[in-house]
Amino acid sequence: MPRSTRKPLFIGMSAIALLFSGRAVAQTDTEIALTQIGHLLDDALFFSDKYVTPATDAAVYQSSSGWVNSPKAKGLFEVTFGLHANVFFTPQRDRTFKIQNSDFSFFQLEEGTEATVPTSLGSDQQVYLVGTLGDSPVRLETPEGIDMQTVAYPYLQGSIGLWYDTELIAKYSTRVKLKKSNYQVYGVGLKHTFSRYFKGLKENNIHLSVMAGYSNEEVSFNFLDVKTDYGTLGIDEITGHVDTWQFQMNGSKEFGRWEAMGGFIVNTSDIKYNVSGPKGTIEDLLPFQKILNKRLEEIYKTKVNYIGEASLRYTIGNFNVQTILAFGKFVNTNISLQYTFNNKQQTQEL
């Protein structure tokens, strides 16, 4: 990845003086320390982007599939409630990245000049990075990945039929604890069945719909545990925040109790990052976490995804069992058990 343009880091000379309080340092030493802190932040920014971006890309796929249970119109105020299990397959190509000494301005590899390290989706393999802050050595292990080939988590989804063959959809999961990470998603959408305008389609049990929705995903990972003689830096956890706007079209055909569905999804996601968790002890001298979060704005990004979707649904009375496969850059599966509360009021032809 090309290195981002390095912006000068402004830290008040008074803060640096505090950082080195109790030590006899010359003006030159203070200037060197200022430069070193700027370089350390540059390295943290570089590593953050490489490490967490695959997870935020994956989060988009995890939240994108399973919105539409069926393009078929619901009855007015008919409610469906479902328990979904989402299973994401972590691709091999996004589990590691290479680093070399030339990538860093503060740290260097303790052994060798280059290494392969895990992304947030990768293994628990680690290497040591070393540097010097002032006259004090700094040594840390690179962060581990989740070390899981598949990532599974549950969430709840409900929908209610409205007027004009429109449907309100909502999904929510509590903060799910995964291996070395946490994940949470919530969202809301509107679906409209436009096959209502084509009488022949309905007579042949063919249904077409469009859906627009918004979802928010948060995924967090254990990050860099950096200890120095001046205190811990407080960047033990990094969180990706993903705001996704989604549009999709779906079509289906009913065969008795079975319904086969296909769809196409396009979405755009605004991705932001911040280091979180307890602040480091260095905060008594320098607001390091705040400074790094400001620098992380340099790697904010917007991404557009095009995703295909295939599904098979089986109805048993008021229950439905459904499997969905979403595919594109990643592969994501969704399995759900749904229950429909039949409404006595029939869908009103409007």
Score class of each variant (00 low, 15 high):
Glu237Gly: 03
His241Gln: 12
Phe223Met: 08
Gly277Ser: 07
Gly280Cys: 11
Asn222Ile: 07
Leu233Phe: 07
Asp236His: 09
Ala260Gly: 15
Tyr273Val: 05
Asp270Gly: 11
Gly277Val: 02
Asp236Gly: 14
Ser276Ile: 04
Phe288Asp: 02
Asp284Thr: 14
Asn250Tyr: 08
Thr232Ile: 10
Gly280Ser: 14
Val275Asn: 10
Met249Asp: 07
Lys272Arg: 13
Phe264Pro: 02
Met261His: 01
Asp236Cys: 04
Thr239Val: 07
Ile235Gln: 05
Phe221Ile: 08
Gln289Thr: 08
Gly251Asp: 07
Val242Trp: 04
Thr239Phe: 04
Gly251His: 05
Phe247Asn: 06
Leu285Cys: 01
Phe221Asn: 09
Phe264Arg: 08
Phe221Lys: 08
Thr239Ile: 06
Thr228Cys: 07
Gly280Met: 11
Asp225Lys: 15
Gly280Thr: 09
Lys279Gly: 10
Pro287Lys: 05
Pro278Ser: 13
Lys253Gly: 11
Met249Trp: 11
Thr268Arg: 10
Ile271Arg: 06
Gly240Cys: 11
Ser220Gly: 15
Thr244Lys: 12
Asp236Pro: 04
Asp236Gln: 13
Ile265Ala: 00
Phe221Arg: 04
Gly280Lys: 02
Lys253Ser: 12
Val275Gln: 07
Thr232Met: 06
Arg257Trp: 08
Ile265Ser: 00
Ser276Trp: 00
Asn267Leu: 01
Phe221Thr: 08
Tyr273Trp: 03
Ala260Thr: 14
Pro278Tyr: 07
Leu224Thr: 05
Tyr273Glu: 01
Glu283Arg: 14
Val242Tyr: 03
Gly262Glu: 03
Ile271Trp: 04
Glu254Tyr: 11
Val275Tyr: 10
Gly262Leu: 04
Lys227Ile: 09
Gly256Lys: 09
Gly251Glu: 09
Asn274Lys: 14
Lys253Phe: 12
Val266Lys: 10
Glu237Ile: 14
Leu286Glu: 05
Ile271Val: 15
Lys227Val: 08
Lys227Phe: 05
Thr268Lys: 12
Leu224Gly: 03
Gly277Pro: 02
Asp236Asn: 15
Gln246Cys: 06
Phe255Ala: 10
Pro287Cys: 02
Thr228Tyr: 06
Thr232Lys: 12
Asp225Asn: 07
Asn222Thr: 11
Asn222His: 10
Tyr273Arg: 00
Met249Lys: 09
